[in-house]
Write a protein that binds this DNA or RNA. Structure first.
Lengths: 195, 195, 195, 195
DNA sequence: GATGAATGAGCTTTCATTCAT
DNA sequence: AATGAATGAAAGCTCATTCAT
């Protein structure tokens, strides 16, 4: 029954994702995850070779999830300015509805180099996501809306900015909800990138 | 000899800062730090109550260090546009010359909530730094150069952007050195914040 | 189908024998054996009650195998001196052609007392083999060729010597192949035992 | 206090040696050893890097112990025939008084290849012992008492024979005490090796 | 007979912290 | 202030065995 196995693997990914994002990679133990799933520790290892491998599968999972959301926006017949806002909106919505996704990205993936060293070189484990940002940017340049600057500078702005805001929100030091900032921020970003 | 104690405390902070930034908080052990200092493990505990307390002292130390650099820029009689560039420059220079400072900020402080939970609520442990960003921003607004938007939105942009670039640089996926991007980035930021 | 069951049981014994001899009893897992046989772990347990029981059945199997080889030699109408050489020859041939047999004997059976404690007391699990050595010895005494010493002293010489040589060969520290030593060794043994 | 550390290391070696010899390498746990010493598990690791390393240090210790006993015999101004008997005697006395030494050799070292693979290649970890056997043999040849056969053939005889007897004794299937066989066995060996 | 997911006890090893010296 | 041996809880991971299908 390969389908059932797939299903259980995803259950594990989901539970581990939430715990890693909430408590951190090193402070979440395999028994923590197993008991959240009412599953035995030993059985966890029938689905993942090691804690590190699990962490890597999770970031892939997130990359695919966010990448597909971005792809949908990229495919809409709208201006780059409108896409910019939609992306910010999507990012903040994800941060609200599935905060573990963004938190994992920021707090587990970006911060524990040693875990992702082997197997996630460069952006190998987040390629689906990065690719879509690249498409957004290149189409904006092609259509004449965006300045043709170095992609990584633009990428750093976009992702750093959004990540920074989500972080501040997580620290509960933003006076308003994330959604409150959507207009300001997408305008800031667009202003920074436009021709 | 309280002076000498202060000195040794700083030596510990410096060594721990480097190791935590390089290897991560959980993968750096107290014996690691002690042996880097050719000091006994037991003696370390004469200067710090616990590994967590050491981590908190380090972030304070960084906050004061970066805060004073920012203060110097804030006090210069130049336009906000010029300040913006100088801040970007200073940040990237720090990232080049003392990478452990920025890395610690990004990879230890921002990512290990559980460690800083008690004692660093809100921005308590980085107040010196945040205060100077606030001053930069408020003076820019007062002088009429910057739009009077929510401070945290501006802060998130500034810090998220710069942090994102340093992260990309650390991952060795930037095609150029950080200094290459100073103009682009300070322009992007200024464009995003200006009136 | 009791016959088919016997067959599969022997397949398991053969595979387990090879793996135990090669990798050791404790470092060979039941899944190792099962996957070598392309059989499920659960099904293995339809044929053997436990890993220990499997180990015991294997040593019996080896005892019967070697015992029958010895019996054939014992039944030949030749002198004890000639038999001695034939036994050495047979032992070394087995060590060359089916090294797992001798290795299992030396490295699994002789070394893991705790496994064979219950059920293989004394020489219970190698009786077929020991019995034939006994016959060889007693006939040699009866015929006047061998000195009538304590059987176990003779047995220890014979088996210890051969085992020691096979061990040295396995360690790859013998400068020559085992067959090179057949004459020397059978002469040494015969000299030691003769009247 | 390096002396104290040395002392404790030897205590650990002695306790581990006994337990490994008695219960086997894999069935003896580090907690077993620690509690036999009334020492904490963690502290054990201040003296040995791993269970495997401990096993390797033990075999070295035994090699040195037996080597020095052999050396004393080798240095006596007696015939090779007399030395032969003394060696058998010494070996059996050790097997009686410190059975863990011989048992470890036979049941742990000889049988768990995988443990000693790295660091004990060839006879690297038993060189002290083997060297003395070599000296015994070569001097016997030089003095004209022993036949000049391949050393390893002689070594296999000697050690295999003695090991086999100790094994049979351990299995409690020898009708007499080991010492009972000293004359028989040393005569057998001498007859086998003499010119 | 056959499967392989599931269990859970138990292993080796690590490490923050303490404390006698 | 300084040492580093000692502690012991807890981690990641393994594997013989079971059992629902």
């Amino acid at each position: 029954m390969p389908h059932k196995k797939q299903t259980k693997k995803e259950l594990i990914i989901q539970a581990a994702l939430e715990l890693f994002a909430l408590k951190g990679f090193y402070t979440t133990t395999i028994p923590d995850i197993a008991s959240a799933l009412k599953m035995s520790v030993g059985n966890m290892y029938n689905y993942f070779k090691s804690k590190d491998m699990l962490a890597k599968e999770i970031i892939k999972y997130i990359s695919i999830y966010l990448g597909s959301k971005l792809q949908a926006i990229n495919e809409e017949p709208i201006t780059t300015k409108e896409k910019t806002k939609k992306i910010v909106q999507m990012y903040f919505e994800t941060a609200s509805n599935r905060p573990e996704m963004i938190d994992y990205f920021l707090r587990v993936y970006l911060s524990n180099r040693e875990v992702f060293k082997d197997g996630c070189e460069g952006m190998a484990c987040v390629s689906e996501f990065v690719t879509e940002v690249m498409i957004y940017f290149e189409e904006g340049v092609k259509s004449g809306e965006l300045r043709d600057q170095d992609f990584f500078s633009a990428f750093g702005l976009f992702m750093g900015y959004l990540g920074g805001m989500v972080f501040l929100n997580g620290e509960k030091i933003l006076p308003n909800e994330l959604s409150f900032y959507i207009d300001d921020i997408s305008e800031n970003i667009y202003n920074a990138l436009k021709k």
